[in-house]
């Protein structure tokens, strides 16, 4: 019950964030160069036609009226119709969403599977080979641009070895390259955070208590080091997933992966401001939700946070 009450409170407290985001998105889209009405009408359209389209879209109304119209529509669940596709924005997003979700999850899973053990081992054995590999991976992950990793992988696996497809999403094999590309970037950060978090917990006093009890090293490490070290790692993982669910713009574009990120790029190039608005709003929502989920996981791991969070609700 406390959890439900907590969630209700969190959603309620998200409203100001959401309103702020709506205002910001609205202004951002209006100040972008390019006239959507003229774009829709085509380069040889008459001024009357452009004017007519402008009226249809409501672009001739005063700016504050436009904002109120926009917010009312959003509250009703109406994200508007895409100018380019003529379909409801929400449909476009929902159509692309599964691709983004699967790519995000596969990439994060690969990153976790490699970065966590690597970070842990390099913290426990700072002078080992694994530790060296971990530093190299964090360095590559942190300093290499995504598009470059993507191009190199395409060059090796698609062009030279002809093993994997380089674009599209027609078969499960298509996900391999974009997922690896993304996971390499995630891995760098995750390895570094895991390593430093484990090192920090290792030197804390309660670990000495655990040793003084005569517990086996393995239990001390898993129970008293790793579980405590998990707390900052969860934050990073949450942020990463949140980021990815909003669409991995560059990766999706390079690999022509039909997710939210490439949809956003298309929308921007077409000056489809309704679609752009919709996608950005969707990203904001994803972030709010991911933050709440991360906090709940936090509370599950750390009773101190649990007490504070539950008490506030």
């Amino acid at each position: 019950m406390t959890l439900v009450r907590y969630l209700v409170r969190r959603v309620y407290h998200s409203i100001p964030t959401l309103v702020g985001a709506l205002l910001f998105i609205f202004i951002l889209v209006r100040v972008l160069p390019g006239d959507p009405a003229r774009l829709i009408a085509g380069p040889e359209a008459l001024e009357e036609d452009v004017q007519r389209i402008r009226e249809q879209l409501g672009l001739n109304k005063p700016i504050h009226t436009q904002f109120i119209d926009y917010v009312t529509a959003v509250l009703k669940g109406d994200f508007g119709r895409s100018i380019k596709f003529g379909t409801p924005v929400i449909n476009e997003i929902l159509f692309r969403l599964p691709y983004t979700i699967i790519l995000a999850l596969v990439a994060e899973a690969i990153a976790i599977a490699i970065a966590l053990p690597l970070g842990i081992i390099s913290a426990l054995r700072p002078k080992s080979k694994t530790s060296y590999i971990a530093s190299v991976i964090s360095l590559i992950g942190a300093s290499t641009p995504v598009f470059w990793i993507a191009l190199i992988l395409i060059y090796i696996f698609s062009v030279s070895l002809k093993l994997l497809p380089s674009s599209g999403a027609d078969s499960p094999r298509h996900i391999i390259l974009p997922a690896i590309t993304l996971s390499l970037v995630l891995m760098g950060n995750l390895t570094r955070i895991t390593r430093s978090s484990v090192i920090e917990v290792l030197s804390s006093n309660h670990v000495l208590t655990a040793l003084a009890k005569g517990l086996k090293d393995r239990i001390v490490i898993t129970r008293h080091v790793l579980k405590n070290a998990l707390i900052p790692i969860i934050t990073i993982m949450g942020l990463q997933v949140g980021n990815l669910l909003g669409g991995a713009v560059i990766t999706e574009t390079v690999f022509a992966w039909p997710g939210i990120g490439s949809l956003l790029i298309d929308a921007i190039f077409f000056r489809d401001y309704v679609l752009v608005q919709g996608i950005i709003l969707f990203m904001v929502l994803v972030f709010i939700i991911v933050n709440i989920v991360v906090d709940v996981i936090y509370a599950y791991v750390d009773p101190r946070i649990r007490d504070v969070l539950w008490r506030m609700s």
Binding site: S204, N205, H206, L208, T209, A210, L211, A212, K213, G214, L215, K216, D217, R223, H224, K227, N228, V301, D302, P303, R304
Partner: peptide
């Protein structure tokens, strides 16, 4: 050896530390 020491620690020799706040694990 590490194992022999472990069977003494906590069973034959107990230790009480200075700062009770940081010597307990906050999550259990």
């Amino acid at each position: 050896s590490n194992d022999e020491l472990r069977s003494i620690r906590g069973r034959k020799i107990g230790i009480i530390f200075q700062d009770p706040v940081t010597y307990l694990n906050p999550i259990y």
